[in-house]
């Protein structure tokens, strides 16, 4: 294998891993709501969204694992890496908070994830394009669901409006990282494999502004971007999340159901 082919392979591995990590961490967060959501339908909805995300994560981990040398399995990637090796966005690892915080986090992610996947369906990498074409159908429902709640709570009672407004302010600083392109993003875009984050940012902003207005909510004032997730610099919350998620396979390696 030539040096450039090898580096492309390792780029593709990391690029795929980042997406897998986002889905996996957000799935784990949503599943924390099981049996705790404000109503039964919501309990089912959040865990169903989590199920879609873990399905997407598995396809992506399997693909990442296939690009890895020496060989690893999808489970190695999910369960045997420490926090500094995780490449997810800081947004998805933020704690659930109250229901409004969870919905704000989910909505900002969904409004990013759907156009991300739509672009990725046109990737020159056929496997990523296929995974995206499958996931895009699911992400549409996720966005519909979180949008509905933003509207319902924002344009609800004075109290629900205030709680939703507060939640948006809490989550907002973590949304900037979704659009910060690093060297890898630029190389992947150049190769026709990755997503154009500038185009994505415009799509996200117009969608978010329109929804916030219709939900009578105010867009928070922009602050400095909080970044580092994709380089393995995480908030303390990821450590706790991983400790819970990984304890079983780490304490009993290679066990089967």
């Amino acid at each position: 294998m030539s040096a450039s082919a090898a580096s492309t392979k390792s780029d593709l591995f990391t690029y795929t891993l980042r997406q897998a990590d986002n889905s996996m961490v957000l799935c784990q967060r949503l599943c924390e709501w099981a049996a705790r959501a404000p109503e039964l339908e919501e309990d089912i909805a959040l865990t169903n969204i989590g199920l879609d995300l873990i399905g997407q994560a598995r396809s992506l981990y399997q693909y990442s694992a296939s690009l890895c040398d020496p060989k690893v399995s999808e489970d190695d990637l999910a369960f045997m890496r420490d926090a500094h090796q995780w490449t997810n966005l800081l947004l998805v690892e933020q704690p659930n908070g109250d229901f409004a915080d969870t919905i704000a986090r989910q909505y900002f992610y969904d409004a990013w994830h759907l156009p991300f996947l739509e672009q990725l369906t046109r990737s020159h990498d056929t496997t990523l394009a296929a995974i995206a074409a499958k996931s895009v159908k699911e992400a549409k429902y996720h966005l519909r669901h979180s949008s509905m709640w933003i509207k319902r709570l924002g344009d609800g009672t004075e109290y629900s409006h205030q709680r939703m407004q507060d939640a948006i302010a809490t989550v907002w600083p973590f949304t900037k990282e979704m659009f910060v392109a690093d060297e890898l993003d630029l190389r992947m875009l150049e190769a026709g494999i990755g997503v154009d984050l500038d185009v994505l940012k415009r799509a996200w902003e117009s969608q978010v502004v329109a929804l916030l207005i219709s939900a009578t909510l105010t867009k928070p004032i922009d602050s400095e971007a909080i970044t580092g997730g994709r380089q393995g610099q995480h908030t303390e919350y990821l450590h706790d999340l991983l400790a819970e998620m990984q304890v079983l396979p780490r304490s009993m390696p290679n066990r089967q159901w």
Binding site: E41, E42, I44, A45, I49, L51, Y141, R144, H145, M148
Partner: peptide, 9 residues
């Protein structure tokens, strides 16, 4: 419509 998500995905 009651919920976008029913008994299965």
């Amino acid at each position: 419509l009651v919920s976008h998500f029913g008994s299965t995905a």
